[in-house]
Design a protein around this nucleic acid. Structure first.
Length: 295
DNA sequence: ATAGAGACCTGTGTGC
DNA sequence: TGCACACAGGTCTCTA
């Protein structure tokens, strides 16, 4: 799935399509994705005007004018595509193209907007889901109540990360994947951030903190690199590997900038390092790193 | 509390 | 060609 940069890229594509538009029709083609759709889902969404489209971690949020917010998670393989309707003034995207990898049989939800735009949610693995929540109580919703900090916010600081990491024996990779600590990093960007910081994914998370819980020099290196890699990826429109694409069907470019992810066996990209990118499995996921310059 | 494994589901690539 | 297996951007739940 999309990690934070991909979700943010999709949000930027969807905001001008949805904001101010009314959802005229909702075609829900199966009873569930990862979870059953909410009770009376289509009835609660149809007729609503979307006030704004925002993001929290890897969640896309559509605030509706009737007091509820539509929560969308893309899981591993979710995609959202915009098909500009004829006569639509609000939509400047290209045509929705099926042959870019989306399979029509996995088009599970179709939105029809008052502007004439059609928006299609496609998700072969169905690890994604859609929920509805009271906008006034959104932060108390179970999807968000235990969620960690936004990595691009000021709240993610070396001090914060060290305080959370103090005393932990879990490896850095698993620690950074834990959405209850920092929310939005995933398998790609954890590997890339650790590479940029020169930190081993196998190092104990607790070594980000001194005994009194204050940050070590490692935490001070890591935090700016987390932010930098996410910002770089957003600037490149995210990463397009297998099935992720933008709302307009085009691809992100950040996969070309991966230093380690999916580059097992290639020479380390760090200047002066003669190491080789290696792969190992942590938390049942592949980790890519250079054993020479990441310590 | 924390760590690790398994589960959810479909598609694709690899090797025999 | 067919088949088995490994692996894929996530996260929830269960067990020690």
């Amino acid at each position: 799935m999309p990690e934070l940069p991909e979700v943010e890229t999709i949000r930027r594509g969807l905001a001008p399509v949805f904001e101010g538009a009314r959802i005229m029709r909702l075609d829900v083609r199966r009873p569930d994705l990862r979870y059953p759709f909410p009770e009376r889902f289509a009835q609660r969404v149809c007729g609503q005007v979307v006030n704004w489209v925002f993001r929290r971690a890897k969640y896309l949020l559509f605030e509706l004018d009737g007091g509820e917010t539509l929560i969308v998670h893309l899981g591993m393989s979710g995609r959202i595509s915009v098909l500009a309707g004829s006569g639509s003034a609000a939509v400047s995207f290209g045509d929705y193209v099926y042959d870019t990898g989306a399979l029509p049989q996995h088009d599970h939800v179709v939105f029809e907007l008052s502007t004439g735009a059609r928006v299609i949610y496609n998700d072969p693995r169905r690890f994604g889901f859609m929920l509805l929540a009271d906008t006034a109580q959104l932060s108390q919703h179970r999807a968000f109540a235990g969620l960690g900090v936004e990595p691009l916010s000021e709240v993610l600081s070396p001090e914060f990360l060290a305080a959370k990491a103090a005393g932990r024996s879990a490896d850095l990779k698993s620690f950074l994947l834990d959405q209850r600590i920092v929310a939005g990093l995933g398998n790609i960007y954890v590997s890339e951030a650790l590479f940029r910081s020169g930190l081993s994914p196998r190092r104990a998370a607790g070594t980000l903190a001194r005994l009194d819980g204050t940050p070590t020099e490692r935490a001070r290196r890591l935090v700016p690199e987390i932010k930098a890699v996410l910002n770089d990826a957003i600037a490149a429109g995210g990463s397009s590997l297998r099935d992720y694409r933008h709302a307009d069907g085009t691809s992100g470019r950040f996969q070309e900038a991966f230093a380690v992810y999916d580059r097992e066996g290639e020479p380390c990209a760090r200047r002066g390092c003669t190491g080789t990118v290696r792969r190992l499995v942590q938390a049942q996921r592949s980790t890519f790193f250079c054993g020479s310059c990441q310590r």
